[in-house]
Simulated assay, not measured.
Amino acid sequence: MSEPALAPRNALGGVVIVWVAALIAALAIGIFVPEEWRVQWLLVGFGAAVLLSFALQLGYAQTKGFTFRVAASAIGALLLLGVVSAAFGLAALIPA
């Protein structure tokens, strides 16, 4: 007989952590990076978010839904980075 499985940890927390990290990275990039370098740094931030999503989901050690959770993390991070970069782009059009 096999032992009963313990209650699995909630893997949705890892998705939210990646989204929060992407939001913080996008805001930091928008504030501290000059306008001509923002796109390159946003790509670096997205790459870091994808790597973070893989690391967190591998840390949960649950095979069921792994691809969905990583995809949700990456797509959410991409959308957040896009929305924040669009906001900073629109803000740059307003004369100071």
Rank of each mutant, 00 (worst) to 15 (best):
L23K: 07
L23A: 11
I24M: 08
A25Q: 04
A25N: 02
A25W: 01
A26T: 00
A26K: 00
A26H: 02
A26D: 01
L27K: 01
L27R: 01
A28M: 03
A28H: 00
A28S: 10
A28C: 11
I29Y: 01
I29N: 04
I29M: 02
I29P: 00
G30S: 04
G30A: 03
G30D: 01
G30L: 04
G30C: 04
G30F: 00
I31M: 03
I31K: 02
I31V: 12
I31H: 01
F32W: 11
V33C: 03
V33S: 06
V33K: 05
P34Q: 11
E35Q: 15
E35C: 08
E35L: 14
E35D: 15
E36T: 15
E36L: 14
E36A: 15
E36V: 14
W37L: 12
W37S: 14
W37Y: 15
W37C: 10
R38L: 14
R38S: 14
V39F: 15
Q40S: 15
W41F: 13
W41G: 00
L42E: 10
L43V: 11
L43Y: 12
L43D: 13
V44P: 11
G45M: 07
G45Y: 00
F46A: 01
F46Y: 09
F46E: 02
A48T: 10
A48D: 12
A49E: 02
A49W: 05
A49C: 12
V50S: 05
V50F: 09
L51F: 15
L51K: 06
L51W: 07
L52R: 10
S53N: 13
S53H: 02
S53W: 06
F54L: 09
F54N: 07
F54G: 04
F54P: 03
A55D: 04
L56D: 07
L56M: 10
L56P: 03
L56I: 13
Q57H: 13
Q57Y: 11
Q57I: 11
Q57V: 12
L58H: 07
L58W: 15
L58C: 10
G59M: 08
G59N: 12
G59T: 14
G59K: 07
G59F: 05
G59Q: 07
Y60C: 04
Y60T: 02
A61F: 10
A61G: 05
Q62R: 11
Q62H: 07
T63C: 01
T63P: 09
T63Q: 05
T63G: 13
T63F: 09
T63I: 14
K64C: 10
G65E: 07
G65S: 08
F66N: 09
T67A: 11
T67F: 02
T67D: 15
T67M: 11
F68W: 08
F68V: 14
F68S: 11
R69P: 06
R69T: 01
V70H: 03
V70R: 01
A71S: 14
A72K: 08
S73W: 03
A74Y: 04
I75S: 12
I75R: 10
I75T: 14
I75K: 05
A77P: 07
A77Y: 07
A77G: 13
A77S: 15
A77E: 06
L78V: 08
L78W: 02
L78G: 08
L79V: 13
L79P: 00
L79K: 01
L80R: 00
L80T: 02
L80G: 01
L80W: 00
L81T: 08
G82F: 05
G82C: 09
